[in-house]
Amino acid sequence: MNLPDRAIDAGRFAGLELLASSVLLVDSRDRVRYANPAAENMLDASLKSLSRQTLAALFSNGDELAALCEQTRAHQYSDLRQDLALERGGRDILHVHSIASALDNGEVLIELRENVQQLKLDREERFLDQSQANKELIRNLAHEIKNPLGGIRGAAQLLELELPPLHLNALKEYTQVVIKEADRLQTLVDRLLAPHRKPHIVGDVNIHEVCERVRSLVLAEFPNGLGIRRDYDASIPEFRGDKEQLIQAVLNIVHNAAQALAGRIAAGDAEIVLRTRVARQLTLAKVRYGLALDLHIIDNGPGIAPDIRDRIFYPLVSGREGGSGLGLTLAQTFVQQHLGMIECESRPGLTDFRILLPLP
């Protein structure tokens, strides 16, 4: 069987080789005759291995794509467009926008473009489900830990009172270790439970007042070597929310950024940018909003370590030695209580936290 060769078909397919979208050419029996480099990359297979495979062999539900090809041939439309979720055994589902165009001799040219919006919605849905499960787990664990901690601390205090005077100084050191560690764990538990205890105090919020408050607090702690640049959209309206919670959420992110910039602060070129914009027609937690606040907190630090990048909002996950791993968890909780969410993109030299909140 003669397999397709790019050198042989160079003239016919030259215009498709550099396309960013994936292109497949199938014959009258829905067997793959050609795949451009983007398609090879999407399907994680070479043209040689794809050649002569049928659409049904490429995808578990390839019959949907085959039906699209058949309709294209039968009706001779200029093209047929459809959103598909193509299933591949043991791999992630491909959410694509497909365009099928009929050619000569029963051939069909299929263009596949990743459906970025659907991917984003699926990612948000998974994140929200995981976030809710984490909150329930942490809340239950915190309550289970809290009661024994009180007993341990009380027992250590009683033990200290019963120590014989002769050995008091020698043994008191150990009881104090127990008491102090119990207090430390109590503080940690209180921080885990804090977002669920405090009432939601709603009032008019100006996001730039929030940013300015955070900016002054962080610059007071890092007066040298750090610049915090403003890039505000003054047209953003006030909205209803809990100002103190939002200050804490933004402060946690900016403070984390400042700590990650320790090396650049020492060199004197550390920078954090606070950028506000209006986003339009945005979907948050499956709800469509006409307007939303789009707040970016950008730093020029080393970036988030790849091994924790997907888990940074989970409780007790920290990229800094000695960190509690609660700052971003609390920030995400406070933002979610305002029907919003936080996203993050990071690479060496640039980390961008994006807070999205619905606007009236």
Rank of each mutant, 00 (worst) to 15 (best):
R29I: 07
F313V: 04
I138W: 01
G154Q: 09
L350Y: 09
S22N: 13
E244K: 08
L84F: 11
Q332F: 02
A67D: 07
K172V: 14
A67N: 09
R275M: 11
A258M: 06
N206F: 02
H95Q: 15
I145G: 03
A35C: 14
I312C: 10
G225H: 03
C344K: 05
L112C: 12
P360F: 02
N115S: 12
R88S: 10
G327C: 06
L161H: 14
V254K: 00
L86P: 00
G150E: 04
R91D: 10
K180M: 09
L149C: 08
I272E: 06
L3H: 13
E343H: 15
L119K: 08
V108P: 00
N147W: 05
A305V: 00
L86K: 03
H296K: 07
G15A: 12
Q82F: 09
L326I: 06
D352W: 00
L94M: 11
A305E: 10
L168R: 14
E87F: 05
G327D: 03
R288T: 15
G150C: 05
S346H: 01
G227E: 11
R347C: 08
D79P: 03
F13W: 13
D183E: 13
P302A: 14
K146C: 06
P195K: 02
R309M: 11
H196P: 01
S346A: 05
L246S: 04
L356E: 00
S60Y: 00
A220W: 04
V202C: 10
A170Q: 15
L112M: 15
I93N: 07
P348C: 13
D242E: 11
P195T: 02
K198I: 01
L171P: 03
L293E: 02
P164Y: 06
R347S: 09
K48E: 15
L293C: 07
F353P: 00
R215E: 12
Y289N: 12
L357W: 00
E162L: 10
D310A: 10
L246T: 01
T351C: 12
